[in-house]
Design a protein around this nucleic acid. Structure first.
Length: 880
RNA sequence: GGGCGGUUAGCUCAGCUGGUUCAGAGCACCUGCCUUACAAGCAGGGGGUCACUGGUUCGAAUCCAGUACCGCCCACCA
């Protein structure tokens, strides 16, 4: 490095060192005799692009992995991407739509060709972006959840659980989007309060032969067009108003079909009329009531949201048209009692904005009971820790109520379910078509390959990502209990830490624990660190539609990756949402510059064979202690995953202690040289600081570390050992603190009196001895004089603890002002003393409080007395 | 509606098992400085009834109960 510029320029530095790290394969890990430290990346969507949430998450991951590497562990961070079936398929569908192509028209095979092409074109961009951020992933280990080996793992897992009897096919109500003609997940349904009507309808009691009597009940519904699908009327068994209905049958208006009156606790007595029409095919809750009471399921709405022939009336009408028409018909028939305005939450499709239609369909499920119980135990026993701990409660609640996992999706992009149907509708489950044919022929020897039809659905994306901590190392393992883990899996599993958002605690974290326990008999990671959600300054979620999410790459370009990393970490305590503000990144950039310039100073030192100044000697002794003290704190913070606290501790050590105090203390006068011992110590301190902060700021630290000494090609700060705290004498820190107070006192006087820093002053200290006097002289620009008494009123005094100090100022002093100041202070201490004495004279206090506390109070009393004495003497002096 | 968590300085947060002058940090703010490492800087400074009410205790930001508000997860009243 040549002359250092006055400002740090990240751009020139970052690409250079990342290329260097890659060229030397510093990120690559292979099993060896060292202790492993492993992280698997939360795989981002393969076609996704980097957003601020990724920046936060991956910065944290990188800090942990770099720290572990410097701690001497064999650190391995496995990167990769997720095929993200729904998100990716949506994107491909949208792109095809632009070209006027519908996926149904081109068919599965052709569609998948487009999808793969899309993946090749857009896939992995995000991994390139992570490099810009400085992430030290082992790129040779990059995985993709839909690559052949990992897809096989998924299929094997399915077969394994099917054989175990935990996978079954069942009917479930899904969120049907009648425009997109697909089921959508719960997350893709947006509930919006919608203005509608509450129709009160009269159902006549049947005489038993399908004829109406003159008795009736009234139900309230928002969906009158579904009455033809009613299977029962339900009332609460405790509702006295409806006791008379017990065992009765009623007639559905307009079509006169007879349905029973049943009783179920689900019905709220004080809502609506207390009578609920039960429509199992078109309402989730009604479906569940139907199950409990064995009601028939009659579907009258088709995939397009139109009434079908089972409705008997209004066949072919759209559900909303049908609603209007049927209301009129009901009114004419005399069944409409009244119509109320009503606002209720209605589910809309996130993508098409169509009103979601609950629809029954056949789905594949995985039984959760046993898996959840085991995975709950993993966390409750502490084999896996959650940080922050509060998520254990959330986790427990979910695991204790886990419903079977619906693993099928009506999509094409993903691992296709390995169930093969025979012509008679029965099916076999096998890992390959060949095996399936064999199995089918065992049932019916006449079966040929073309007779078998594979299930159309693919598996939920999470059904592949839950294997991630295992499959990235050994894809053969999932689904194969007898398979011995390969070398990588045996070495790297279980991984150490997982950093992820709390929003996927169930989708992903819980299920990885299940898979880990099932296939490895061991938890997949020891700690899960939950980050918060990145929000903007005013608390809104970052989103594309709001346009409040900055592009991280622009930020890196402007401020540098180190600055962006600092900016994200500064405000990120675990589990709290992050309020993103560009100001934090500017703070990070300022810190880079500060580090840069502190090095410029040291690098510029002329070294000469001169004796070390006493101030420099004291400063070195102090900073060595301070460094050790801080290292211990930083280690403690890291051990508790308090990353932002660790960063802040180093930040203050670097800026306040090293730059503002240490460097100023050892800095020679302009043009003067520095002695060799001081130069050496200073560079050593600086190197320690670089190493401490490297995990957070990888680029600038590498740049400077390479410059402070002769380095060979292939050397890197990445593998420099983390500085260790050494034993130190606490008195060193205490003495320095006293001296610093004295310096601050003098500076206060200067500020108050408008005296420039260059003007030498005389400081009288009323004491027989005081620590670090050369330091005080250097830092405060004074000559210190130890005196017995302060008889000269021409000056300004202040107290350092109980020691009185006095800056001599000829003709500049306002005695009256000094007097007022001292009197005010005296009052304060007197009040304080009173408080302490009240406590000490309280018998209950002295009887109950521990000795330590009482002693502290006595010391406070003594200190206060001493200060009062000093102040009183001073006041007497001033009054003369 | 059920569960969980929160409320401390203008902002973001720390404060572990009640007791050190415990009321803190960073940023922001105010004042004075372009003092040859750094104005992305230096020095100094102001600022909080620890949400509210009650209780336990010699002693409460800290423990307990209630109230108010906020956030998250789940279920989302036909």
């Amino acid at each position: 490095m040549k002359e250092l510029a006055a400002k740090y320029s990240a751009k020139e530095v970052e690409d250079k060192w990342y290329a260097y790290w890659l060229a030397h394969k510093f990120f690559h890990s292979e099993p060896n005799e060292k202790q492993p430290y492993t992280i698997v990346i939360p795989p981002p969507n393969v076609t996704g692009i980097l957003h601020m949430g990724h920046v936060l998450n991956n910065t944290l991951n990188d800090v942990l992995i770099r720290k572990a590497r410097m701690d001497g562990k064999n650190a391995c961070w496995v990167p990769g991407t997720d095929h993200a079936s729904i998100a990716t398929e949506n994107k491909v569908v949208a792109k095809l739509r632009e070209q006027g192509i519908r996926k149904e028209d081109i068919g599965r095979e052709e569609f998948l060709k487009h999808a793969w092409a899309w993946k090749e074109e857009h896939g992995g961009i995000i991994l390139q972006q992570l490099k810009k951020l400085g992430c030290s992933c082992d790129w040779d280990r990059t995985r993709f959840t839909m690559e052949p080996a990992l897809s096989e793992a998924v299929i094997n897992t399915f077969v394994y659980f099917y054989r175990k009897g935990w996978i079954y096919k069942g009917v479930r109500m899904v969120n049907w989007d009648p425009e997109a003609l697909t089921a959508v997940s719960d997350d893709e349904v947006i509930h919006k309060d919608t203005q509608s009507h509450f129709y009160h309808l009269r159902y006549y009691i049947s005489d038993g032969n399908g004829n109406p009597t003159d008795k009736f009940l009234v139900i309230a519904t928002t969906r009158p067009e579904t009455i033809m699908a009613d299977a029962a009327i339900c009332v609460n068994p405790k509702d006295e108003r409806h006791f008379w209905l017990k065992g009765k049958k009623v007639l559905i208006p307009l079509i006169n079909r007879e349905i029973p009156v049943i009783e179920d606790d689900y019905v709220e007595m004080d809502f609506g009329t207390g009578c609920l029409k039960v429509t199992p095919a078109h309402d989730v809750h009604d479906y569940e009531i139907g199950l409990r009471h064995n009601l028939p399921v009659l579907e009258i709405i088709d995939d397009h949201g139109k009434l079908n022939e089972k409705a008997q009336i209004l066949v072919g009408e759209d559900r909303f048209v049908a609603r209007k028409k049927i209301v009129k018909m009901l009114e004419e028939a005399g069944n409409l009692v009244k119509v109320e305005d009503y606002t209720s939450p209605v589910g809309y499709s996130e993508r098409t904005d169509a009103v979601i239609e609950p629809k029954l369909s056949a789905q594949w499920f995985l039984k959760m009971e046993s898996l959840a119980a085991t995975a709950l135990e993993t966390v409750l026993s502490g084999r896996t820790n959650f940080i922050p701990e509060k998520y254990v409660n959330t986790y427990r609640h979910w695991m204790e109520n886990a419903r079977d996992w619906c693993i099928s999706r009506q999509l094409w992009w993903g691992q296709r379910i390995p169930a093969y149907y025979l012509p008679d509708g029965s099916f076999v489950v096998e890992a390959t078509p060949e095996a399936a044919l064999k199995a089918a022929q065992a049932i019916n020897p006449a079966i040929k390959a073309e007779d078998l039809k594979q299930d159309e659905d693919v598996l939920d994306t999470w059904f592949s990502s839950w294997l991630w901590p295992i499959s990235v190392f050994d894809p053969e393992k999932p689904g194969h209990p007898e398979h011995q883990p390969n070398k990588d899996l045996a070495y790297y599993y279980p991984t150490n830490d997982l950093v992820t958002g709390p929003d996927i605690i169930f989708f992903w974290v819980a299920r990885m624990i299940m898979a880990g326990e099932e296939f490895m008999g061991k938890e997949p990671f020891s700690n899960v660190y939950f980050t918060g959600i990145v929000r903007d300054k005013i608390g809104r979620k970052m989103s594309k539609t709001l346009g409040n999410s900055p592009n991280p790459l622009d930020l890196i370009d402007t401020y540098g990756a180190d600055a962006v990393r600092i900016g994200m970490l500064l405000c990120s305590s675990a589990g709290n949402d992050i309020f993103y503000d560009e100001a934090q990144i500017k703070q990070g950039a300022a810190f880079c510059n500060k580090i840069w310039n502190s090095y410029r100073l040291v690098k510029g030192f002329q070294v000469a064979d001169i004796p070390q100044t006493p101030a420099a000697k004291l400063a070195i002794e102090w900073f060595a202690a301070k460094l050790s003290e801080t290292i211990a704190q930083v280690e403690d913070h890291y051990s508790k995953f308090r990353i932002s606290d660790a960063l802040m501790a180093i930040y203050k050590l670097f800026w306040d202690d090293y730059c503002s105090w240490y460097l100023e203390a050892i800095k020679p006068a302009y043009g003067q040289p520095v002695d060799p011992a001081t130069q050496k110590a200073t560079l050593a301190f600086f190197e320690s600081l670089l190493k401490l902060i490297h995990p957070v700021m990888p680029f600038i630290t590498e740049e400077l570390w390479q410059d402070i000494a002769e380095r060979k090609e292939g050397e890197t700060i990445m593998y420099a050992p983390t500085p260790k705290a050494e034993a130190f004498d606490p008195a060193v820190l205490e003495n320095f603190a006293l001296a610093a107070e004295a310096v601050n006192g003098v500076r206060g006087v200067r500020a108050q009196r408008n005296i420039g820093p260059k003007e030498q002053l005389n400081l009288k200290v009323k004491a027989a001895a005081f620590p670090c006097i050369p330091l005080i002289e250097k830092m405060a620009g004074v000559t210190v004089e130890l005196v017995d008494g302060l008889d000269d009123a021409q000056g300004v005094g202040f107290l350092v603890r109980t020691t009185e100090m006095f800056v001599k100022l000829e003709g500049l002093v306002n005695v009256q002002e000094e007097l007022e100041k001292a009197t005010k202070e005296l009052e304060r201490f007197k009040g304080f003393l009173q408080g302490v004495r009240a406590k000490l004279s309280n018998e209950k206090f002295t009887a109950h409080a521990p000795a330590q506390v009482i002693e502290n109070e006595r010391k406070k009393e003594a200190d206060a007395l001493s200060k009062i004495e000093t102040l009183e003497a001073k006041i007497a002096q001033l009054k003369k």
